[in-house]
Computed example of a mutant assay.
Amino acid sequence: MKKYLLVLLACGFLGQAQNKPVISKAEVVRIETELASDKMQGRKVFTAGIDSASVFIEKEFAKIGLDYYEGLTSYKQEFKARGRVANNVIGVLKGKSKPEEFVVFSAHYDHLGTTSGGNDTIYNGANDDASGTTAVIALAQYFKELNQNERTIIFVAFTAEEVGGYGAGYFSKNINPDKVVAMFNIEMIGTESKWNKNSAYITGFDKSDFGTILQKNLKGTNFNFYEDPYPTEQLFYRSDNARLAAVGVPAHTISTSKMDSETNYHQLSDEVSTLDLDNMTEIIKAIALSSETIVNGKDTPTRIEKLKRN
Rank of each mutant, 00 (worst) to 15 (best):
164 G>V: 11
91 G>N: 06
99 P>C: 00
101 E>V: 02
70 E>V: 11
116 S>F: 12
20 K>L: 15
215 Q>M: 11
172 S>T: 14
132 G>Q: 07
38 D>V: 09
121 T>V: 15
127 N>L: 08
277 L>G: 01
52 S>Q: 09
139 L>P: 09
147 N>M: 06
206 D>V: 00
7 V>S: 06
61 F>R: 04
246 A>G: 15
40 M>H: 07
281 T>R: 11
122 I>H: 13
246 A>V: 01
164 G>L: 11
279 N>D: 13
141 Q>P: 01
46 F>R: 08
258 K>V: 12
127 N>I: 02
218 L>M: 11
149 N>W: 04
207 K>G: 02
120 D>P: 07
299 D>L: 12
44 K>M: 08
52 S>P: 00
216 K>A: 12
198 N>M: 13
95 G>H: 04
83 G>H: 06
118 G>C: 12
217 N>Y: 09
202 I>R: 10
212 T>Y: 03
186 I>F: 05
92 V>Y: 08
257 S>C: 13
210 F>E: 06
191 T>K: 15
178 D>E: 15
247 V>G: 10
199 S>K: 09
289 L>N: 03
104 V>A: 05
55 V>P: 00
151 R>V: 03
158 F>N: 01
22 V>C: 03
286 A>L: 05
237 Y>P: 00
279 N>V: 04
118 G>S: 10
143 F>L: 04
181 V>T: 15
48 A>G: 05
243 R>G: 00
283 I>H: 01
191 T>A: 12
34 E>A: 09
27 E>F: 05
75 Y>E: 03
219 K>R: 14
92 V>D: 01
299 D>V: 11
89 V>E: 01
293 T>V: 09
116 S>E: 09
29 V>D: 10
216 K>Y: 09
156 V>R: 05
304 I>A: 12
33 T>E: 06
200 A>N: 08
144 K>L: 02
58 E>Y: 04
275 L>C: 05
124 N>H: 15
304 I>Q: 13
239 S>G: 07
74 S>P: 10
85 V>A: 05
31 I>N: 05
119 N>D: 09
285 K>Y: 07
270 D>H: 07
257 S>Y: 02
296 N>P: 02
215 Q>T: 10
298 K>T: 12
152 T>E: 03
118 G>I: 13
145 E>F: 08
11 C>A: 15
305 E>M: 03
247 V>I: 15
37 S>W: 03
258 K>G: 01
83 G>E: 03
153 I>G: 03
7 V>E: 01
148 Q>E: 12
272 V>T: 09
63 K>T: 13
146 L>S: 04
103 V>P: 07
4 Y>I: 14
132 G>P: 06
102 F>C: 00
22 V>I: 14
49 G>E: 03
297 G>F: 15
263 T>S: 12
274 T>S: 13
69 Y>N: 01
